[in-house]
């Protein structure tokens, strides 16, 4: 067993967990934040993307113990006072989601893109999101939503 302390969505928590607990499992089962989804087990689909110390990572590929002391932001943590983040707003406005399963990871990846590149081109957005699989939307409205968010942020 290991003691892990993190700041999750602005709130400090400490949990006693098994050594091999994966970060995605820690978030979903120990912290009960089920907005982070798990769509595969090979770090390919990107549904589980969260921010650790401001950077997007696939939470199915990190051990919770390895992020001890970090600040973690999940999809639940980007809404402020009931208002959605501009990226979430843009996804809604332009129908960038259908079933919603890949969406939390997609949104978290896209936000990190804009942290690195304020005005990405279509190609840059498509290449950045290559690690997030969506089976529903055909990606077109996601690209449009990221561009829309870039214009608002």
């Amino acid at each position: 067993m290991k003691k892990v302390s993190v700041e999750i969505n602005g709130k400090k928590v400490t949990k006693e967990i098994q050594d091999h607990t994966i970060l995605s499992v820690f978030i979903r089962e120990n912290l009960n934040l089920t907005g982070t989804h798990v769509g595969c087990d090979t770090s390919q689909c990107g549904a589980c993307v969260v921010h650790v110390d401001g950077k997007s990572i696939k939470s199915c590929t990190a051990l919770a113990a390895d992020v001890n002391g970090s600040k973690i932001t999940t999809i639940e943590g980007i809404t402020k006072n009931g208002n959605m983040h501009p990226m979430q707003e843009a996804f809604k406005k332009l129908h960038g989601l259908q079933c919603g399963f890949c969406t939390p990871g997609m949104v978290m990846s896209a936000i990190d893109l804009l942290q690195n590149n304020k005005k990405p081109s279509d190609t840059e957005i498509r290449e950045w999101l290559e690690g997030n699989i969506c089976r529903c939307t055909g990606y077109q409205n996601i690209i449009a939503a990221v561009k829309e968010a870039a214009s608002k942020m």
Partner: peptide
Amino acid sequence: VERKEDKKLLTGRGKYTAD
């Protein structure tokens, strides 16, 4: 019309079977 179901799905408040 923007989708009524989107806010819950975009904010991590959806409820899938695994949840």
